[in-house]
């Protein structure tokens, strides 16, 4: 294992975060705060409690997930796309490192950043609404697993993307809608019966449901199923990445 290389990539990626502090940390925190003000405090005060949880508190796990999903995807994809775009990938390819070490560096950094952001938003939320966390360890486990899975997913997008537009399109056009429709702001049980069925095809439903369970002990779907879905998604991403590195697809000719 080339630990120095993993560390070098990891630190390089985190340094990118500090360089772009406003964009990487301040902006997600600001936009989430706006959600809390609008949906949590302003509109939420007129809403009835869901499953005995005040509306403001109910949306906390979903909003954290929204940020963690988009941030881990876009960070990991940007991290590996940039060297491809600028040509500096030559150095990564010519270095004595394996695919696993490259992934540990890039995905590790993207996931760390997403986890950090998730925790910052959790703290921010505390300023606006009152909530408790019933299963803190499970909460952390869901947070970490989701961040890693979607960083892997982002890594794949970054490798496959041919332009900045393609890079943006998945977080913007896929992740955000799926998160909004995945129960960030409502409970699945509030939907008409047909939509309750359709929405089960949305993988984000399982993430949010499991994550919310770790906060309040209530879930739309079984927690075990949530966990299984995250692990399945992670396994799928690892499989695709293995295939990419095995064939050199879009990385090496």
């Amino acid at each position: 294992m080339n630990f120095y290389a993993i560390k070098a990539i990891y630190l390089f990626e985190l340094a990118r975060t500090w360089r772009t502090l406003m964009q990487s940390i301040a902006s997600p925190v600001l936009s989430t705060s706006l959600y809390f003000i609008v949906f949590g405090s302003a509109i939420g005060s007129r809403m009835v409690a869901i499953d005995g949880i005040s509306y403001g508190a109910f949306i906390v796990p979903g909003l954290i997930m929204l940020t963690v999903l988009t941030e881990s995807t876009s960070n990991a994809s940007f991290g590996i796309y940039m060297p491809k775009f600028s040509g500096t990938i030559y150095e990564i390819l010519s270095a004595p490192i394996s695919a696993i070490e490259i992934i540990l560096g890039y995905v590790g950094a993207a996931a760390s950043k997403a986890i950090l952001l998730g925790l910052i938003i959790l703290l921010t939320a505390r300023f606006f609404v009152d909530f408790s966390i019933e299963h803190p360890l499970w909460m952390l486990a869901f947070l970490v697993l989701t961040a890693i899975s979607f960083s892997l997913f982002g890594f794949i997008i970054g490798v496959l993307a041919n332009s900045f537009e393609q890079l943006q399109i998945v977080p913007l056009m896929v992740i955000t809608p799926l998160t909004f429709l995945g129960g960030s702001f409502y409970s699945i049980s509030m939907l008409p019966p047909l939509w309750q069925q359709i929405t089960l095809f949305n993988p984000v439903v399982y993430l949010i449901s499991g994550f919310r369970w770790s906060f309040y002990g209530v879930a739309d779907v079984n927690v075990g199923l949530s966990l299984a879905m995250i692990l399945l998604f992670m396994a799928l991403c690892i499989g695709v990445i293995c295939w990419i590195f095995h064939t050199g697809y879009k990385v090496k000719v």
Partner: peptide, 8 residues
């Protein structure tokens, strides 16, 4: 420094 680390 990055290059040195990358090469182990």
């Amino acid at each position: 420094s990055f290059s040195r680390g990358l090469f182990g």
